[in-house]
């Protein structure tokens, strides 16, 4: 893009990221719904991502079971709470952790954040398969993929991504795929403290950074081929 002007051209850097995704209104720490779900997460290691965890939580507050009307999406409310909370935690990590600020390049930062996010799953490790099963159910998959996109978008953005071309998509898409793969691996991982998962994360993410460039190269190549192909046809056609 070119800016026409006589004076100094202001350098406009706009990253394509919404600073504040529209959060679900229930994701307000003051709301009773938040408090019940937060407490319910403590029951998840025991009961899994099940409505039972919400039920037990609301009972500890002394509420009638009728309050379950609040959670008409049942289990998905709980799962979504987990996903959103862990994603938002990353923003805190970035602003509060000195370790993160020391990191130099984008790729290391992505790696760091993905691992942080995976750490968020550790307490619920044995229920990840169940969580993933819920996420791919037809009624949930739309919201689930949106949440996944927000996660990779946040990670990319927080790591300093400034792509504004096709790489924007490819970077997020590739991160999403990698993340899902890692989580699936984690669900089966029996190693202590999920060391295997974190090792795999290191490996998988090392060449992730090149992907954006690869996509751009492919795009450029395709454009060139199509263009010259068209020119070839044109030149043949005009010869009559």
């Amino acid at each position: 893009m070119r800016t026409i002007g006589l004076g100094a051209v202001p350098k406009v850097v706009r990253s394509y990221h919404s600073y504040e995704h529209d959060e679900d209104p229930f994701f307000n720490k003051e709301s009773p719904k938040y408090r019940i779900l937060e407490k319910a997460m403590e029951f998840v290691p025991e009961y899994g991502f099940q409505h039972k965890a919400i039920l037990e939580s609301s009972r500890t507050f002394g509420y009638s079971d009728a309050i379950q009307s609040l959670f008409h999406n049942g289990t998905f409310d709980l799962i979504k709470f987990h996903l959103v909370r862990e994603r938002l935690r990353l923003t805190e990590v970035v602003s509060k952790t000195e370790e993160f600020k020391q990191l130099s390049d984008e790729n290391t930062k992505v790696k760091y954040l993905v691992k942080k996010r995976l750490e968020g799953n550790v307490p619920y490790g044995k229920h990840i398969t169940q969580l993933q099963t819920y996420l791919v159910l037809p009624p949930n998959i739309g919201e689930a993929s949106e949440e996944l996109h927000k996660l990779s978008d946040d990670i990319r953005f927080l790591s300093g991504d400034s792509a504004n071309d096709f790489a924007w998509y490819s970077k997020r898409l590739s991160l999403s795929t990698t993340y899902v793969a890692l989580e699936t691996f984690m669900a089966q991982d029996k190693s202590p403290n999920y060391t295997n998962t974190f090792e795999l994360a290191d490996k998988r993410l090392s060449n992730l950074g090149d992907l954006g460039q690869v996509y751009n190269d492919v795009e450029e190549f395709l454009f060139y081929t199509v263009n010259s192909g068209l020119n070839l046809i044109k030149s043949q056609a005009t010869r009559g």
Partner: peptide, 15 residues
């Protein structure tokens, strides 16, 4: 009625 989704859950007293 669906939205209220009311009813005694297992392990609870009747509503």
């Amino acid at each position: 009625i669906r939205r209220l989704d009311a009813g005694a859950r297992p392990g609870s007293r009747p509503l």
